[in-house]
């Protein structure tokens, strides 16, 4: 087989480029532990109301025993519930999502909060919002003819002005029901 010397150099360059990109990705994943939402946790989407975590009264912002902020939300055609939440800036916030009907996706524009919400599974994302402000939260997966109207609002307030959860805080960090 014939390989031109110039071609040989290019092959080296190609593997170097791809190698550098892969090293960056594996470094952030394995050392800095940056992962996309991948918790593989099942739930019965048809009976969320019977679970403790996703029952209507328990949705919203919670502060766990360890002072971590946890947000439980439900995606349903065509809205995210609760429709408005308030979370502190500069604090790790863990979102837990479930859908009661079809496939949805959700992202807060210009942040790292982005996940698919798949029937039968709970999605979980932890992120920190550095900048206080009003953030729209959009459904980003086609979920039916009313998809355009599916969105809600998140207010990120400065850490020292955050008054805590507006709904009753669950004493223990229970998962599922």
């Amino acid at each position: 087989m014939h390989i031109d010397p110039l071609e040989r150099k290019w092959i080296f360059v190609v593997f170097a480029m791809v190698g550098i990109m892969l090293i960056a990705i594996f470094f952030t994943a394995l050392v800095q532990r940056v992962h996309p939402p991948s918790n593989v946790e099942t739930i019965d989407s048809a009976s969320l109301h019977l679970t403790q975590e996703f029952a209507e009264d328990n949705l919203g912002v919670h502060r766990g025993a360890d002072a971590a902020v946890r947000v439980t939300m439900v995606a349903a055609r065509y809205g995210f519930y609760p429709q408005h939440i308030e979370v502190p800036a500069g604090t790790p916030v863990t979102f837990r999502w479930a859908t009661i009907d079809v496939l949805h996706g959700v992202h807060m524009a210009r942040t790292n909060m982005n996940t698919m919400v798949v029937p039968g599974f709970v999605s979980q994302v932890t992120t920190v919002f550095p900048e206080p402000g009003e953030y729209p939260m959009f459904c980003n997966e086609y979920c039916g003819l009313g998809h355009d109207h599916m969105w809600s609002r998140v207010t990120v307030v400065p850490k020292d002005q955050w008054s805590g959860p507006k709904v009753a805080t669950v004493a223990a960090d229970k998962k599922g029901g």
């Binding site: 992962h35 939402p37 991948s38 982005n114 996940t115 698919m116």
Partner: peptide, 13 residues
């Protein structure tokens, strides 16, 4: 499926 909850991180990586 990077953003999907039904597959674990290792498989995605």
């Amino acid at each position: 499926l990077y953003m999907d909850p039904e597959q674990a991180a290792g498989w995605k990586l």
